[in-house]
Amino acid sequence: MQDDIRALRRSTGTLAIIAVFVVAYFARDLILPVMLGFLLALTLSPINRFLQRRGLPAAFAATLLILSATACIGGAVFFAGDTVRAWSNDAPNIARDLKYKLSGVTETIDAVKDASTEVEKMTAAPAEGPQQVVVQQPGLLNSAVTVAASSLTSLAVALVLALFLLASGDLFYVKLVQTFRTLSGKKQALAMVYDIERRVSGYLLTITLINAGLGVVVAAALWAVGLEHAYIWGVAAFLLNYLPIIGGVVGTVFVGIHAITYFDSVSYALIAPIAYQVLTTVEAQFVTPYLLGRRLELNIVAVFLTVVLWAWLWGIAGALVAVPFLLVFKVVCDNVDSLTVISNFLGAAQDPPKQRT
């Protein structure tokens, strides 16, 4: 009987996890801006409290912070928008130039591709297949406009939600604590909430400052190499570095493409992506671990799998929120006795198993 009950609980838990991911996949447009709003509020909460201790009202401090964040986002879009738009319009010429300069590599790839096609033709059985219906996809311009409108809407909702959360002060925490009846439950909930805020805000605020420094260094290095619009790649490095593991690789590839099409010598052009990769590697291996210290006590395998999972569910936006989400989940597991095993698995390799008293 007990075995049947345990099996039923496991099945129910499995179905609940599947249901959560299904809802997350189909309700992305609703859940994503809410998550971004909470994360932004957590990031700015230490600064908000500092301003309040200096005598500023909570609503005024929150408005000042959100307006500053909006100005930073708008400034980045304003300075980088025209150049990125010009690159998008010139994409066919860029692709043609890249293909010409890498003609030796592309000829080898084309030869392998042609040989593979010939083998498929020889091994394929001649048969009359059914007529295929090709569904015409929406144009690139329509897709870009749709994505831009959706992104702006999500960002606006996130900023407004963060404003309300910051302006409310500790009201959200008070309401959360009031939902628990026992004193021990209230204490545990309050400790967990403050632990989440401390770890997530510390991580996001620190990683934002690190990314800003990385963006400045990358822009200076590419400017020294002679690459045009080096500041654009500084902004790109700042944003891409929020993507753990894959952000540096993506930035290196795009910098390499731009450098090859800009410089006459391919060998000299390779200096730019090599410099970008070296700088992001130094940041990831030395700067971030030193500054974050034990604030990011996560298993690197768990981080990678979480990034892959949320990138599959929500694309780039999912990869951006993956690590903060994992931090929140880790804190919850740290404070719930039944989730201790998961907490120890998610912890870093050098962390000893947590003992509860």
Rank of each mutant, 00 (worst) to 15 (best):
residue 149 A to F: 06
residue 145 V to M: 10
residue 152 L to C: 09
residue 190 L to S: 13
residue 155 L to I: 08
residue 180 F to H: 13
residue 174 V to F: 15
residue 147 V to I: 11
residue 158 A to E: 02
residue 170 D to T: 09
residue 168 S to T: 06
residue 146 T to W: 04
residue 155 L to C: 10
residue 152 L to E: 05
residue 201 S to P: 03
residue 195 D to K: 07
residue 160 V to E: 03
residue 149 A to E: 09
residue 165 L to W: 00
residue 181 R to H: 12
residue 143 S to E: 11
residue 199 R to Y: 02
residue 180 F to V: 00
residue 189 A to F: 09
residue 161 L to N: 00
residue 177 V to P: 00
residue 176 L to N: 02
residue 184 S to E: 15
residue 167 A to G: 11
residue 184 S to W: 08
residue 186 K to M: 06
residue 164 F to Y: 11
residue 140 L to A: 12
residue 192 M to F: 05
residue 203 Y to F: 15
residue 203 Y to K: 10
residue 159 L to M: 15
residue 159 L to D: 10
residue 181 R to C: 00
residue 140 L to G: 10
residue 190 L to F: 06
residue 170 D to R: 09
residue 151 S to R: 15
residue 176 L to P: 01
residue 202 G to P: 01
residue 145 V to H: 10
residue 177 V to F: 06
residue 171 L to E: 09
residue 169 G to Y: 10
residue 153 T to Q: 15
residue 180 F to R: 10
residue 198 R to T: 05
residue 174 V to M: 04
residue 170 D to F: 02
residue 194 Y to G: 02
residue 143 S to P: 05
residue 169 G to E: 01
residue 201 S to K: 03
residue 192 M to W: 07
residue 193 V to H: 14
residue 201 S to M: 07
residue 195 D to T: 07
residue 173 Y to W: 12
residue 190 L to N: 08
residue 164 F to E: 02
residue 178 Q to R: 15
residue 172 F to Y: 06
residue 191 A to W: 00
residue 171 L to M: 14
residue 172 F to D: 06
residue 142 N to M: 14
residue 149 A to L: 15
residue 148 A to I: 14
residue 176 L to H: 10
residue 163 L to F: 15
residue 163 L to N: 12
residue 148 A to E: 03
residue 156 A to L: 08
residue 172 F to A: 14
residue 143 S to F: 06
residue 180 F to E: 08
residue 160 V to Q: 07
residue 155 L to F: 13
residue 184 S to A: 04
residue 189 A to K: 08
residue 192 M to D: 06
residue 186 K to A: 05
residue 200 V to C: 05
residue 188 Q to W: 03
residue 170 D to E: 12
residue 151 S to G: 06
residue 195 D to H: 07
residue 175 K to T: 12
residue 153 T to L: 12
residue 165 L to K: 03
residue 157 V to H: 07
residue 175 K to D: 04
residue 160 V to S: 14
residue 192 M to E: 08
residue 202 G to A: 04
residue 153 T to G: 10
residue 164 F to S: 02
residue 197 E to W: 01
residue 190 L to H: 08
residue 179 T to Q: 09
residue 163 L to E: 13
residue 199 R to K: 11
residue 149 A to Y: 05
residue 156 A to H: 01
residue 166 L to N: 05
residue 148 A to S: 12
residue 139 G to W: 02
residue 182 T to K: 00
residue 148 A to L: 15
residue 144 A to I: 13
residue 201 S to R: 03
residue 145 V to A: 14
residue 203 Y to Q: 01
residue 173 Y to M: 08
residue 161 L to W: 03
residue 189 A to W: 12
residue 170 D to N: 11
residue 183 L to M: 11
residue 148 A to N: 02
residue 165 L to Q: 01
residue 148 A to H: 04
residue 197 E to G: 13
residue 152 L to V: 06
residue 140 L to E: 13
residue 139 G to E: 04
residue 147 V to Q: 14
residue 155 L to S: 12
residue 183 L to D: 13
residue 197 E to P: 00
residue 184 S to G: 07
residue 160 V to D: 01
residue 190 L to E: 15
residue 153 T to I: 06
residue 199 R to H: 09
residue 145 V to D: 07
residue 163 L to V: 01
residue 167 A to P: 03
residue 197 E to I: 01
residue 139 G to Y: 04
residue 163 L to W: 13
residue 156 A to Q: 02
residue 155 L to Y: 10
residue 169 G to L: 02
residue 193 V to M: 15
residue 168 S to I: 02
